[in-house]
Write a protein that binds this DNA or RNA. Structure first.
Length: 510
RNA sequence: GGCUCCGUGGCCAAGUGGCUAAGGCAGCGGAUUGCAAAUCCGCCAUCACCGGUUCGAAUCCGGUCGGAGCCUCCA
C-alpha cells in the first residue's frame, strides 16, 4: 500500500485514488517572467518520479503542469524590456522546457497556459459571483472570504489572520483577506474582455479553472512548493470548493524548498557553534528569483542533468535541500560506481545496460530466487526499495537500496570471477540482477542514456590509447616498470586514468 | 507576534516505540595489484541539551538552546 503525506490532514494516509486505477495530478508550474533556477526543478523532478512510480504500480496517471503566462511581474518585465508580454512568456517557457528535458522530466501530459483558458477562467469567476462567493467592484472581482466557512483549513489559519495584500485594491475590498479573482486593466496593460470590463485573471483562479477543465472538479493529487500553501493553494481550494460544493483535492503534496549553501558546502555544522556563528548567519539563503539566484543552464552544462536529478532525489522531497556545488560533485562521484558497474557488466555479458528494457510494472519484475543466495539478496534489496517508495516516495531511502544492489552485484562478480571464467548459470543470475537494477533506477528516471563522457573517445583517441596500452603491456611483460609507470603517470597528468583489470587494461578520461 | 517545520558519525542523508541506528562522500586498516586504479572485506555515531511517559525512545510528551519557511511576489 502506498502512503502519502497529505498537507491537509498533516499526516500520512493510504493512497486510494478517487477512481480505482486512475490518478490525476496537478502541479503548480512556473510564472514565466524570468529564467528558472534550480529550486524550480525540485517539484517537477519529484513529481516526474512519483508519476513513474504510480504508473509502475499499475495506475493510469495524468499529470498536468500549468504555465502562468499572465501576471503582474510579467507585465512589469515587459515594460522594462520594452517587448510584449507574450514574447517574454514564450522565451521563458522555452527555457523552462529545455531545463525539464535536461533533467529527464518527460512524464508531463499537459501544460496548459492561463492565456489559452481565458473563457474558462471568466466562467469560473462568474460562477463564484452567481453562487454568492464573490463580488465585483469597479471592474475588479474579489473572492469573499467571509462567505467561505472552511477558509484557512489547508494552511491552518483563520480568515482574519490571513491578511491579504493591502495595496491600492484594499479600499475596494470588503475585507482585507479577500483576494482578486479578476483585475481590471489599467492603461495599456494586456487585457481580455469580460463581463466586468477589460482585465486579467488574479493569481489563483487559473489553477482552479484549468484543473477543473482537465482533471475535473475533484482530483487526486495537487502539488507544489511549500511556499505555495498560503496563499496560493489555500485560495485555490477556497474557490474550487465553494464553486463545486465538494472536495477539490484528495491529497495535497508539498515539496520542501531549496536553500543555497556557501561556496564550500559546509553548512549547518553543529560543533564549534560559537566560532562559526558569525559566518553561519549568512551562509544559508533562500533561493529565489528576487534574490538573483540563477545559472541553472550553467549548472546543467557543467554537471549534467543526471547528477542534478540524482542529487535532488537523494533527499526526501519534503525536506529542505541545501544546494551546494560540492554536494553536486559528491553526487557525481557516487554515480561513478553505477557507471563502472554498467561497463563491467557489458564486458562480461556483451550487453549494453542502456539497451535493457526497464520493467513496466512491479509484478513483472519479481522473480524466483530459488536457492540462489545471490538472487535472494537481490530480491531483498528490490523489496526494500519498493517499501521505501511506498512510504511517501522515500527516494532517499530507495537510492541507498540501489547502492546496496551495486555492491551485492560487484561482490558476486568478484566471488565467481566472472571477468575471467565462463559460467552460464552465474551470468544468467548476473543478468537478472542487473535487469532489476535497470528496473529500479528507471523509476527514479536515471541511467536512461550513457553519461556524456563515458569510456571511449573519438576514433583517433581510441587508436592512440590502444597503442599506448599495447606499449605499456610490453613494458610490463618485460618487467620494465619504469617505462610502464611513465606512460601511466603521464596519462594521469592529462586526466586519463589507466586500469589494469584481470581481463585487460582499460582507460577513462576525467 | 501568529502558523508550520527541522537539529542523526568529519560532511550529506534514511530511520519516527523494540534485533548489532541504512546508504553515499571523505578517512583508516586489509584482500587484490609489480606498484597503482577499480572492486571486495573490515573500522569509524547512543541520535542538540534537560526532564518525563514506557518493560523499552533517536523515535511519544514538556522545557531549553539553535536553525529554517510561511504570514508580501515566490517552486
Amino acid at each position: 500500500m502506498i502512503r502519502v503525506y497529505n498537507t491537509l490532514s498533516k499526516q500520512k494516509e493510504n493512497f486510494q485514488p478517487l477512481e480505482e486505477g486512475k490518478v490525476g495530478i496537478y502541479l503548480c508550474g512556473p510564472t514565466v517572467y524570468d529564467k528558472s533556477h534550480i529550486g524550480h526543478m525540485v517539484g517537477p523532478i519529484i513529481f516526474d518520479t512519483i508519476k513513474r512510480y504510480l504508473s509502475f504500480s499499475g495506475m493510469d496517471v495524468t499529470w498536468v503542469v500549468n504555465i502562468t503566462d499572465v501576471d503582474d511581474k510579467l507585465i512589469m518585465k515587459s515594460r522594462d524590456r520594452g517587448i510584449p508580454m507574450e514574447a517574454i512568456a514564450e522565451e521563458m517557457t522555452e527555457d523552462y522546457l529545455k531545463n525539464l528535458a535536461a533533467l529527464g522530466v518527460d512524464q508531463i501530459d499537459q501544460m496548459p497556459k492561463a492565456t489559452e483558458h481565458m473563457d474558462e477562467i471568466i466562467q469560473f469567476t462568474q460562477d463564484l459571483i452567481d453562487k454568492g462567493f464573490a463580488y465585483a467592484v469597479d471592474g475588479d472581482v474579489f473572492f469573499d472570504v467571509a462567505a467561505d466557512q472552511g477558509y484557512g483549513k489547508l494552511s491552518n489559519r483563520s480568515a482574519d489572520a490571513a491578511q491579504g495584500a493591502g495595496g491600492e485594491a484594499a479600499s475596494r475590498k470588503k475585507s482585507a483577506s479577500d483576494f482578486a479573482l479578476w483585475k481590471a486593466a489599467k492603461d495599456d496593460e494586456p487585457s481580455w474582455d469580460s463581463p466586468w470590463g477589460k482585465g486579467r485573471p488574479g493569481w489563483h483562479i487559473e489553477c482552479s479553472a484549468m484543473s477543473r477543465g482537465i482533471l475535473g472538479e475533484s482530483f487526486d493529487i495537487h502539488g507544489g512548493g511549500l511556499d505555495l500553501v498560503f496563499p496560493h493553494h489555500e485560495n485555490e481550494l477556497a474557490q474550487s470548493e465553494c464553486c463545486h460544493g465538494k472536495p477539490m483535492v484528495k491529497y495535497w503534496m508539498h515539496n520542501g524548498l531549496m536553500r543555497a549553501g556557501d561556496a564550500t558546502g559546509k553548512v549547518g555544522g553543529r560543533s564549534d557553534r560559537e566560532a562559526e556563528e558569525q559566518q553561519q548567519a549568512t551562509v544559508e539563503t533562500k533561493i529565489s528569483r528576487s534574490k538573483g539566484a540563477g545559472g541553472l543552464a550553467d549548472l546543467i552544462d557543467t554537471h549534467g542533468g543526471e547528477r542534478i536529478r540524482f542529487f535532488l532525489l537523494r533527499t526526501h522531497y519534503r525536506s529542505t535541500i541545501i544546494f551546494s556545488e560540492p554536494g553536486l560533485e559528491e553526487a557525481g562521484v557516487a554515480l561513478e560506481s553505477f557507471y563502472r558497474l554498467f561497463e563491467r557488466f557489458e564486458r562480461i555479458t556483451g550487453t549494453d545496460f542502456y539497451t535493457i528494457a526497464p520493467t513496466a510494472e512491479r509484478t513483472q519484475g519479481e522473480f524466483e530466487a530459488g536457492d540462489c543466495e545471490f538472487l535472494k539478496q537481490v530480491a531483498d534489496h528490490r523489496q526494500s526499495y519498493l517499501d521505501h517508495m511506498d512510504d511517501d516516495f522515500n527516494t532517499g531511502g530507495a537510492t541507498s537500496d540501489l547502492f546496496d544492489l551495486v555492491r551485492t552485484i560487484n561482490r558476486f562478480i568478484d566471488e565467481h570471477q566472472l571477468e575471467q571464467a565462463e559460467s552460464t548459470e552465474a551470468i544468467a543470475a548476473l543478468t537478472q540482477a542487473v535487469t532489476t537494477l535497470r528496473e529500479l533506477s528507471a523509476i527514479l528516471g536515471v541511467f536512461k542514456t550513457p553519461p556524456a563522457n563515458s569510456a571511449g573517445g573519438d576514433a583517433l583517441t581510441n587508436q592512440l590509447m590502444e597503442l599506448l596500452i599495447a606499449l605499456r603491456a610490453e613494458a610490463r611483460a618485460s618487467k620494465n616498470f619504469e617505462i610502464a609507470d611513465r606512460i601511466r603517470d603521464g596519462l594521469a597528468e592529462i586526466g586519463v586514468t589507466i586500469e589494469d583489470r584481470k581481463d585487460g587494461t582499460g582507460w577513462r578520461a576525467g
